[in-house]
């Protein structure tokens, strides 16, 4: 028989289990305890995705690439949408990459609790790990697509300036936006299963409300700050500013985006924590 360490002498943590309450503390420190589980869930998602699809990494690239071709043809060539003096393909691709990161992360995280119901009903862990893992597992796809963007920039001879150091902040903003909305939707999705059918519509609608195919400069000056209520506006314009150099720095619009995301995220965390008390009973 294998050896089993004795526990009698240890100081033991105590835990009080009580009925659900309306307001419960976020206890983000608990999330830190489960960081290894988070790592393994991200690792599982990536590993399985790349094992199951023959095309593997190619999928990560094909979707934004095709969209770029379509957008360049219809918006760039035929509709003559302005692109702030940047070649249209690279102008739109630079926005499509963070957009894909966001859209995939949002969809994955919204469906994540339903997809992991076997875990939720059988074992306890910080439930927040699930939507967060779903958001993070899209990062590899993003990195692969990003190398394509670098190739295109090289082709068009675009050299980014110092603003590139701000790029990680915009990536973070995209992830946090997806997580903030994903927290709300994933918890709602457990309760109301038809939420997932609204996802497609939401993502499409959001795409056209975001300056992916067009520059935000076509929005009248006095409305720009209001436009920033859509946090992806700040992300996309931030990407263009950091990488392509020619656009205006996002300014006020960005701060509105950051504010909106912070509010959504904090609200989403509290909502999620409150709803998670019942996940196992209704999922």
């Amino acid at each position: 028989m294998s050896t089993v360490a004795d526990v009698r002498s240890e100081e033991l943590p105590t835990l009080l289990i009580t009925p659900p309450s309306r307001w419960i503390p976020l206890e983000l420190s608990e999330l830190w305890q489960y960081r290894e589980l988070l790592y393994f869930l991200v690792w599982r998602d990536i590993k399985v995705r790349y094992k199951q699809t023959a095309l593997g990494a190619a999928w990560a690239v094909m979707q934004p690439l095709f969209m770029m071709v379509v957008f360049s043809l219809f918006f760039g060539r035929l509709a003559k949408v302005p692109s702030d003096g940047i070649p249209y393909p690279v102008f739109t691709f630079c926005a499509l990459i963070p957009w894909q990161l966001f859209a995939n992360a949002l969809t994955e995280s919204s469906n994540s609790l339903i997809g992991n119901q076997n875990l939720i009903t059988k074992v306890y862990f910080a439930r927040l790990v699930i939507p967060i893992a779903a958001v993070l597992s899209g990062l590899l796809d993003f990195l692969i697509a990003f190398t394509i963007l670098l190739g295109m920039m090289l082709y068009y001879g675009i050299v980014p300036g110092w603003p590139i150091v701000a790029l990680p902040a915009f990536i973070l903003l995209a992830i946090l936006t997806a997580l903030a909305v994903g927290l709300w939707l994933s918890a709602l999705n457990v309760q109301f299963r038809d939420v997932r059918y609204t996802m497609n519509f939401l993502v499409q609608f959001w795409l056209f409300a975001t300056p992916v195919a067009y520059p935000s400069s076509i929005v009248p000056e006095q409305w720009r700050a209001l436009y920033g209520i859509n946090p992806m506006v700040g992300v996309v314009e931030g990407f263009r500013w950091a990488l392509l150099g020619k656009s205006q720095p996002p300014g006020a619009m960005l701060w509105v985006s950051v504010l909106v995301v912070s509010a959504l995220l904090v609200g989403g965390l509290y909502y999620f924590r409150r709803m998670e008390q019942e996940f196992a009973d209704i999922v």
């Binding site: 526990v7 289990i17 009925p19 059988k122 074992v123 306890y124």
Partner: peptide
């Protein structure tokens, strides 16, 4: 094992709880 919450009453637990409600979860 903290998977679901009680409707009434409470439990005080001393020590970490591991639960095996199923083999091969996940």
């Amino acid at each position: 094992s903290r998977i679901t919450k009680p409707t009434e009453g409470q439990v005080l637990i001393r020590g970490r709880v591991g639960s095996l409600l199923e083999v091969g979860t996940g």
